[in-house]
Design a protein around this nucleic acid. Structure first.
Lengths: 172, 172
DNA sequence: GCCGGAAGTTGTATTCTGCAACCGGAGCCC
DNA sequence: GGGCTCCGGTTGCAGAATACAACTTCCGGC
């Protein structure tokens, strides 16, 4: 699934059998490639994440990152943003709270809501894991030109910018 | 985590606290963004995959795709390629075989090996799911210019082209 | 022929996740 | 105020995905 395995035409490389009909313009080819590569990426992602920082699951890391980014938010926001069930988020947050990485603050405007915030410990763990992850990425992207990095980042942002339509957009 | 939420500087936007040290050049910023967006993407990927084609999990879909691409391969190859434990692959393959989507053929050269192949049913299911996924991607990327699609696809291929370093490259 | 290694399978435990039911507060209409 | 509905969150329950380790069978080298 990885480019290394099908460095040639991303559409026809798949053997045609099941993948024959995508028109054929450059845009079609590109879309096909994007869907395939995003899928490949997503598949491998989780596999290696656990090995690198077992102390913080991928989900936990992501949630903590979100909390830092937003400087606190509600559990429901997290659920909606990551297309997770609210119960899943609830449990994750409980675990993070037990671990002392996040704290819940009541929302003065709405008694139902609890605003989640990183604790200092959470901030430190997050920073540590982030350093490690960033180092891995940096190494992987070491031979890229700056211009390509910037453009790639922009495309990813643009792709991810769209809200969850309920379909498979994230879709990998 | 999505661009829509932090359209500004991806490094400093995170609040500084835990993310202060990445130099600051455009390349650093881009790497930070890529790691963040890839992570976000991967997180959402699995979430939506199940909703789109419940009959074929993301892993199964990927494995089938690999089989079609390679026109058959060993279970061990799948495990190594996707950084999955061989036991996991074994069970996945068992399920796919029970479902009639793949078949095992003994390797004449090595009795230990079983070469996995798609069945016609497997090919059809794969084609169907692929169509659906492709449609979703196409819709999501509908308003992109052709040039951007092509460049984005190229970047993804380049990123994924690297072999698994054992780190967290897939990362998200 | 014997031993180490590779391919797969199976037992066991863990983790993640979703769905459904439920609780309590908020908002709204009468 | 009373009642209805919606929303944020929690908990019970069940299923799926995985990893790790022990075991079986087969291949190769010595």
């Amino acid at each position: 699934m990885t480019a290394a395995e099908t460095p040639d035409d991303p559409v026809d490389a798949r053997g045609g059998g099941a993948h024959g009909e995508p028109g054929g313009g450059p845009a079609d080819v590109a879309v096909e490639t994007i869907q395939r590569e995003m899928t490949a990426f997503a598949r491998r992602a989780r596999a290696s994440a656990g090995r690198m920082h077992p102390e913080l699951s991928l989900v936990s890391y992501t949630l903590l990152g979100h909390l830092e980014e937003r400087d606190g938010c509600r559990a429901t926001d997290l659920a909606a943003h990551y297309a997770l069930d609210k119960s899943t988020v609830s449990r994750q947050v409980s675990a993070l709270e037990r671990a002392g990485l996040v704290e819940r603050r009541p929302d003065p405007d709405d008694q139902r809501v609890q605003v989640l915030h990183l604790t200092e410990a959470g901030r430190q763990i997050l920073a540590q894991v982030t350093r490690r992850r960033r180092a891995a990425f940096r190494e992987r992207l070491a031979d890229w030109e700056e211009g390509d990095l910037v453009r790639f980042a922009a495309y990813l942002e643009r792709y991810n910018a769209r809200p969850d339509t309920g379909g498979d957009e994230g879709a990998g």
